[in-house]
Simulated assay, not measured.
Amino acid sequence: MNYKPLFSRALGLDPERLHFAAHSHHLWPDASFDGQVRAWAEANRFADRKWDLIFGEVIPEAQGHVARELGLPSPDSLIFAPNTHEILLRIVSAIDRAAPVRILATDVDTQVLATASRGVYAIDRVAGLDPAIRKRYFQRGTGPNEGHCRVNPALRDLIDYRPLNLLATRYDVGGPFDALFCRNVMIYFDKPTQRGILSRLIQHMGDDGLLYTGHSENYLHAADLIQPCGRTLYRRAQGAGA
């Protein structure tokens, strides 16, 4: 299939260029230009009810597209979360509170971990949430903290933050874990490095644990370590990590 027609705008800016880059250096398709123009127009047209539009129409439509692409039975099984607290909020809201829930959030950047552990966000970041959820899980700032909100300590305390370098020879993270999220980072490593990382990750997966990966990541070269059980979902291969 020829994908060039999908990138006519970008290719037209420099017709003589041969472009081989991928991921963040990839050319943007025509649809992205149209999407940004539409986003600008809608942000102004619906300025007073933008969250009604986003959560009432845009996100449900996006859930439907992704669910069809992944072959999921229901779009409602998908969530869009910009940070660890948002993921946890949705998990906690959907299960029995008596069930023990713990999340370990890791990053190689300690400043990122420090920011996340504070759990403080601009108030407009949570404006689209249900008012009952905002009241239950967030504390509104006053005085010098006006315009910001803080994650409720009871929710924030369910998350542990720990530095982790995926290139380390061992991961001091404990476990086993029911779910591991490692998305859109492995694309920066070659296949031997990916295998090394996967061989360490599976050591921390439970027997029924799942590994959630990015859409641009493929691990056919590591079939002896992990086996696909969905479009971007993997289980530990039988006998691996023993």
Rank of each mutant, 00 (worst) to 15 (best):
F181G: 01
L220F: 12
A22V: 12
F80M: 11
S216T: 15
E86F: 14
R90Y: 04
Q36R: 10
E146R: 15
H19R: 04
D207L: 07
S199L: 10
P5F: 02
R45W: 05
V126G: 04
L201M: 14
P192M: 07
I103T: 06
V112Y: 00
G147T: 09
V173L: 10
I226N: 10
T213F: 06
L6P: 00
L113N: 12
A114E: 13
I59M: 12
S77N: 11
V37E: 04
H23W: 07
A62Y: 01
L70M: 15
A127G: 14
G239L: 11
A240V: 08
R136N: 08
A62N: 06
A242G: 11
D14L: 12
V58S: 09
A237T: 13
V58H: 05
L113S: 03
V101C: 13
A39D: 04
Y212W: 15
V120K: 06
G71S: 04
L53A: 00
M205T: 11
M1V: 11
G230V: 09
L155A: 01
A222N: 05
N218P: 01
I91V: 15
V92I: 07
A31P: 00
E217A: 07
G128K: 06
G209W: 07
R156I: 02
I226Q: 10
I87R: 03
A122N: 10
A81W: 04
F138C: 06
A94H: 12
D76I: 08
S199E: 15
A122T: 03
R118I: 02
T169G: 00
I54L: 15
Q36W: 10
Y137E: 10
L72H: 12
L6N: 11
L70A: 14
A31C: 13
V92M: 07
M1P: 13
A242C: 02
S216A: 15
T84S: 11
F138Y: 15
W51H: 09
H25A: 13
H215P: 09
H19E: 11
V151W: 01
F55P: 02
R162W: 01
T193P: 06
G141Y: 08
G175P: 09
G175C: 10
H65I: 15
P176V: 09
H148L: 08
I159C: 03
L167N: 12
M205Q: 13
L167P: 00
G12I: 00
F33K: 00
L104S: 04
N2Q: 10
G56N: 11
L88M: 05
G141V: 03
R200T: 05
E86W: 08
A242F: 04
A99Y: 12
D178M: 06
A105C: 08
D30H: 04
T169L: 00
I59D: 02
P75G: 05
A21Q: 14
L78C: 05
M205Y: 11
T142I: 09
A41P: 00
T213W: 09
I202M: 08
Q194Y: 01
A22S: 13
P15M: 00
G206C: 06
R195M: 03
E86T: 11
P60Y: 09
F7L: 06
I133L: 14
H26C: 07
D107W: 00
I202F: 08
A62K: 13
I226A: 07
R134G: 08
Q63R: 15
L72R: 03
Q139M: 12
A98H: 11
G175T: 01
A237D: 10
I187N: 08
A237S: 14
P163E: 09
I54D: 03
K191Q: 14
R118D: 09
F20C: 01
R170W: 01
V37D: 03
